[in-house]
Write a protein that binds this DNA or RNA. Structure first.
Length: 258
DNA sequence: ATGACTCGACTATCGAGA
């Protein structure tokens, strides 16, 4: 079984590339972020034509998360938010969708952008990360044998090497954001992909030739509970997906289970 | 060697992304 995560930056604009990726890799489950549409606007036909079904959660043209999964799989216990997921201005945004595939609990997560260190969105981001870690901790305390994959765009660069030039950044690398990210490790969610694919970026801004200059960031992660981590046999970061026509600014991250 | 952001929204600038 293969699971992937990809911030696609619009499911409609990217449908051709997403379908080609699925045909090429044949991943079983693809967790998407930034689908930028409502469920009724999702381009289901292109996915169904190649044997994939879709679960989408989106409120408007912002955010939005989804799963594409092989049509023989049956998603169970679908949730479109996590327990006490924070709101911004009384709106619970479409930033989380969870479903169990073949016994693996997969969450597609799009962590809010904090914008600036003193922006209200930064407090929202930190609360979002805190609540998410607390929810995962509660579930793993009840059953440490759970196979959980918490994947998506975390909008945090945990290590200095995860950005091309530390002096260019204030957000994504701040200590509060890094502390909030480290909480996942403390509750038992492990970044096995980093061990298998060190020194790689997952995002390059569209602006200022960032990709040709390799001015990137590592902000997309696949965190796994201990039971699931033990099953991971391989991982890739699909850097070539940043090339060519109409790329997303993020690339897919993939792991394989034995 | 060059390039020099993209998407979706009340289609025309603008918010959002990081």
């Amino acid at each position: 079984m293969q699971i992937a995560t990809w911030n696609v930056n619009s499911a409609r604009a990217r449908q051709g590339r997403i379908v080609e990726f699925l045909q090429r890799t044949k991943v079983d489950v693809l967790a998407m972020q930034e689908i930028k549409c409502k469920p009724e606007q999702f381009p289901y036909e292109a996915f169904e034509a190649i044997g994939y079904k879709v679960l989408a959660h989106g409120l408007n043209q912002w955010n939005g998360v989804a799963f594409a999964y092989r049509e023989d799989l049956v998603p169970e216990d679908v949730e479109t938010s996590f327990y006490q997921q924070p709101e911004f201005k009384d709106v619970q945004e479409a930033r989380a969708i969870g479903a169990t595939f073949d016994g693996v609990r997969v969450w597609s997560i799009y962590v809010p952008n904090g914008r600036e260190l003193d922006d209200p969105h930064m407090q929202y981001k930190l609360e979002f990360l805190d609540r998410l870690a607390a929810t995962m901790a509660e579930q793993l305390e009840m059953d440490p044998s759970l196979e959980i994959a918490l994947v998506g765009d975390f909008n945090v660069a945990p290590l200095d090497e995860d950005v091309y030039d530390l002096s260019m950044f204030e957000t994504h690398v701040s200590q509060p954001e890094r502390d909030a990210f480290e909480a996942f490790e403390q509750v038992g969610l492990i970044d096995k992909v980093r061990e298998l694919v060190p020194n790689a970026y997952t995002y390059w801004d569209y602006k200022e030739l960032c990709f040709p200059k390799n001015n990137g960031m590592r902000i997309d992660f696949m965190l796994t509970s201990e039971a699931l981590t033990e099953r991971i046999t391989a991982a890739t970061i699909e850097r070539d997906e940043r090339k060519g026509e109409l790329p997303s600014d993020h690339v897919p991250v993939v792991f394989t289970l034995g």
